[in-house]
C-alpha cells in the first residue's frame, strides 16, 4: 500500500498542523510508515503552506520525499489548485474549500467541495478550525487513517486550549455527507 497526500493552504490556515496530526497518527498509532515534508511562508505575508505526506505499509516502499502523484489532495484556495494540479493523480480524491472561487477541475477526479472556512466560522465561531473540519472529512471519505488514531494524535499535537474545539471540528468533518 502506498498513498500520497498533498495539502496546500496559506499561512495561518493550519495546514502544517493538519499534516503533523496525520503523520503522527500514522507513525505512532498505526503500523504505517510515513514521510512528511513541509514548506511555508510567514502568515502575515499570506505565503503558501504545503504539506507532502507519503504513507506506506512497508519501509521498502518509502523512497522520494515528495508527492509526485497525489491519491488524496486538499486545497484551501483555488490558486493553489492551479499551481499544484500537476502533482495530483488522475484517480485522486480531491477536497476543496468552496468558500472561495473554484477553477476548472479534472473530470477523472472524485471531488468534494465543502465551504470548510465558512462552516468553521458559522458552526464553531472561528475560521481557524477549518483545517480540522477538512481533516475529518478526508478521514471519513478516504479511510486513510483510523479515526481513533487521528483523535489521539490531535490530543497530542494541538495546544491544550484548542483540543476540544479542534475535536469538535474534526467530528463535524466526519459527519459531512455531501
Amino acid at each position: 500500500m502506498r498513498k500520497e497526500f498533498l495539502a496546500a493552504g496559506r499561512g495561518g490556515q493550519g495546514i502544517l498542523i493538519l499534516g503533523h496530526v496525520l503523520g503522527l497518527a500514522a507513525a505512532k498509532y498505526t503500523g504505517l510508515y510515513v514521510t512528511g515534508t513541509e514548506s511555508y511562508d510567514a502568515e502575515t505575508r499570506g505565503g503558501d503552506s504545503r504539506v507532502d505526506l507519503i504513507f506506506t505499509d512497508s519501509q521498502d516502499e518509502l523512497d522520494y520525499f515528495k508527492v509526485r502523484s497525489a491519491d488524496i489532495a486538499l486545497f484551501m484556495y483555488s490558486d493553489q489548485l492551479l499551481k499544484y494540479r500537476r502533482l495530483v493523480g488522475n484517480e485522486a480524491i480531491v477536497f476543496i474549500d468552496s468558500s472561495f472561487h473554484i477553477p476548472e477541475l479534472r473530470s477523472s477526479w472524485q471531488v468534494y467541495r465543502v465551504p470548510y472556512t465558512d462552516m468553521a466560522e458559522e458552526k464553531l465561531g472561528t475560521h481557524v478550525v477549518a483545517n480540522m473540519i477538512a481533516l475529518g472529512h478526508i478521514i471519513r471519505k478516504t479511510g486513510l487513517i483510523d479515526r481513533e488514531a487521528v483523535i489521539s494524535s490531535i490530543k497530542e499535537v494541538v495546544r491544550k486550549r484548542w483540543v476540544s474545539v479542534d475535536l469538535k471540528a474534526f467530528e463535524l468533518g466526519m459527519e459531512l455527507d455531501p
Binding site: 503523520g23 500514522a26 507513525a27 504505517l32 512528511g36 513541509e38
Partner: peptide, 10 residues
C-alpha cells in the same frame, strides 16, 4: 537540509 527537516516514523 532536506533530511534535517523531513518528518518520518522512527
Amino acid at each position: 537540509a532536506v533530511l534535517a527537516h523531513a518528518w518520518e516514523k522512527v
